[in-house]
Design a protein around this nucleic acid. Structure first.
Lengths: 231, 231
DNA sequence: CTACAAATAGTCAATTTGACTATATTTTTT
DNA sequence: AAAAAATATAGTCAAATTGACTATTTGTAG
């Protein structure tokens, strides 16, 4: 740490930007908001905001997420900071990017936004975004692709109760590859991580599949016993 | 992004802190510097500095690393930002932590530091550090433990030419576990990632082991063909 | 020339993978 | 009511990988 502890800041501001991922059966989605004013008016962009003086950075991200979704117990984690000089015009703004995994069923969009301000986009059909937001998204997608194979975080994108086929579709969407159904089932079930709900899905026009849920406590127990989640 | 683009910053400063890892056969080391002045005078701490107005954050980290080691092409990657309100006294300082993997042979310590200012510590014998530096170190160790198993970055801690046994010792130090020698060799060699130097180590009082090197180009080629580094 | 130290090679059962085929249970169609 | 369609679930089997070992080779040191 340098000696000049009382120099005034050379950074104009630190912002938060958030990748909010959702999944609705057909590919992975991301939530964008439309800028109402400012430099990039009319453009779609990642939801973001400024960090307040008296809140932790993690708190700021949580606050932002809640203001968008109305819900607060959502999976949320820091991605990394982006701080190229040229990432933001005029001012020197460093942003700290977060990513959230939400179950699109369980929350009401837009507290304070109209429908036209907030919209889901398939992650591969995202328009050109301002600043370095496309780069942040790319980075987040890579991170998600990796993380979902080594930690059981994908379940956050699904309803509480889900079928094996739903998880598979989710993984196929995130990893961008086809997976063998029997083998995927086998691997997942053999981890003994999923708890059967003893319930079947409803309103499907074919044989109904069993519903399962993910239990963090069971995962933590198994982890202590040496399980390492790998898919 | 909120509308008030021209508010003055509520963050006093953004700093860089760097985890510099080294390996010298006996456990994993980290480089600490002794504070000469300021709030935490006399304490050992992570090397750090302020981000300049006209440099990317990654550049700032590189500059800091070079000022300490004299070398510039070192493996360096961002860990994450740490931004709790209480992490720093008096002022609101957010820090962006990086971690570097250096080969302790190949660089001269302390351009501008005396030996008593800079010192290697075994990562498990680190004193109480100021601010949230112990937390940053813990986070970095976890990250390293994970990353080293999924990406071939460990080689950065070794000399250009190394023996299989050296890699194994490195992995044992980072992962904090014993590994079976024949099985470790087999797995590593079967990836066809290591290039034999057709050379033996010297000055050992027993049978000399073959030297290998890691070739990033070969790794990239194999990756394209579907190899995924896993240890 | 013998003891040692560590490198390197090889064995083998158990487990996991990948690529499949087969059967079961529903709903919709004829 | 029977057949067709759709999807869930179960099972097979050879190949590859792993984990826990033993055996051999090649060098140094006394």
């Amino acid at each position: 740490m340098p000696s000049d502890l009382f120099s005034s800041s050379v950074i104009d501001a630190v912002s938060i930007d958030c990748l909010i991922f959702g999944f609705r059966g057909s590919g992975l989605d991301i939530l964008l908001i439309k800028h109402g004013e400012g430099i990039s008016k009319g453009k779609w962009a990642l939801p973001g905001g400024w960090i307040q003086y008296n809140e932790d950075v993690d708190e700021a991200a949580g606050r932002l997420l809640k203001s968008l979704t109305g819900v607060s117990n959502i999976y949320l984690e820091q991605l990394r900071a982006f701080g190229d000089v040229s990432r933001y015009p005029e001012k020197r703004v460093i942003t700290i990017a977060y990513y959230a995994l939400v179950n699109t069923d369980h929350y009401a969009l837009s507290a304070g936004f109209t429908a036209s301000d907030v919209q889901w986009f398939n992650v591969h059909e995202v328009p050109k975004l301002p600043y370095d937001h496309n780069r942040i998204l790319d980075f987040g997608l890579r991170q998600l692709k990796h993380k979902v194979r080594h930690e059981p975080i994908g379940f956050n994108l699904l309803p509480k109760k889900f079928t094996l086929h739903q998880i598979q579709q989710l993984y196929e969407a995130i990893l961008e590859m086809q997976l063998d159904k029997p083998n995927f089932r086998r691997k997942l079930l053999n981890m003994n991580l999923l708890v059967p709900c003893h319930e079947k899905q409803k309103d499907v026009s074919h044989r109904a599949a069993s519903l399962y849920r993910f239990d963090k406590k069971i995962y933590d127990q198994l982890t202590e016993k040496g399980l390492s989640f790998e898919l």
